[in-house]
Design a protein around this nucleic acid. Structure first.
Lengths: 167, 167
DNA sequence: ATAATACGTCAGCTTTGTTGACATTCCAAG
DNA sequence: CTTGGAATGTCAACAAAGCTGACGTATTAT
């Protein structure tokens, strides 16, 4: 950004394989923590991480179509369908035929779905909040910068599209 | 750390649910990128992410025991055994009966194992390096701080124990 | 009319995790 | 020396969640 002259030596020297390996392992262990709390909640029900992801993104973009969800989650329609079918049958998700285009199904959380979503995201947010508090605001900014740079280009585009809606 | 006085107002205001949700989604999309390159390499062979993890931590701590690996990976011995058996049969991993305690098996990468490990970690490091370069040294520091704060306590202990050995 | 799209579904397969049961080998305590 | 417990390996059975391929049905677009 600025003052790169003196800094650039550091920022290159800094990227030793050892430093990178630490980052890789930190990412591995942290992701386990990241999913641990929702996993514990879901384990009691007949649901898994896949259901959590579907619920999360339906909450995020109510009325989203199956195709859109497919692209965000990056799984096959058969795999997503299995998850959605369970959620719809259990009354957590509602599927409505589109008005403009009747081929599309628009997905919404029911009240029960909202309740579970709240439970799951509370648990996940609590840990995230604790981590953010412990690390401090500047660290959080860096955290987000590195994560965004780590995404695939098309995933970053999706991520940024999501952020534009609400963020 | 220091100068927390003026900062603390910011660091609280800052932790809105929206900000936390962004962090959660960034973590989700970034982790996909994080594993994408090794996954592509492994897809060509008969291996998956589980094999990569085993290879990584054997490379990391040559001579480690099965039990130690079990604790780090957090899976059942049956699950790990299936992976190890394939790697041993394919001549990527060598298992040696312990000298002090002959019940233990000490695990090492063979030359072929080292070759694959190099291929996988090169791919993963390349992306990590690019992300680090794009974000800058200060961001990297923050990234690591947040990740470490996000781990479960016992996972952080394991992570730090690993770092002490080589880091 | 025909082609393409969105969705659902059936069938079958793979990877990676899980339990539970049981054998073997070995260390250590009695 | 015997025995209990620990570390390991292995068998069987199962579940979650991904995959491919094929097919059907509405609906929209060309």
């Amino acid at each position: 950004m600025e003052g790169g002259g003196r800094e650039s030596g550091t920022s290159l020297l800094f990227l030793t394989d050892e430093q990178l390996r630490k980052g890789i392992e930190a990412m591995f262990f942290a992701y386990r923590g990241f999913t641990a709390d929702p996993d514990r909640i879901l384990a009691d029900m007949a649901y898994g991480r896949a259901h959590h992801r579907a619920i999360h993104f339906i909450k995020r973009s109510p009325g989203t179509t199956v195709n859109n969800l497919l692209a965000i989650l990056g799984v096959t329609k058969q795999s997503l369908n299995r998850v959605l079918r369970a959620l719809i049958e259990d009354g957590l998700v509602q599927s409505e035929v589109g008005t403009r285009d009747k081929r599309e199904r628009h997905l919404y959380l029911t009240e029960a779905g909202e309740t579970l979503e709240q439970q799951l995201s509370d648990a996940q947010r609590d840990r995230m909040r604790a981590a953010y508090r412990a690390a401090g605001p500047e660290a959080v900014s860096g955290f987000r910068q590195v994560l965004e740079a780590m995404m695939d280009d098309d995933m970053r585009r999706r991520y940024e599209a999501l952020e534009k809606m609400k963020g």
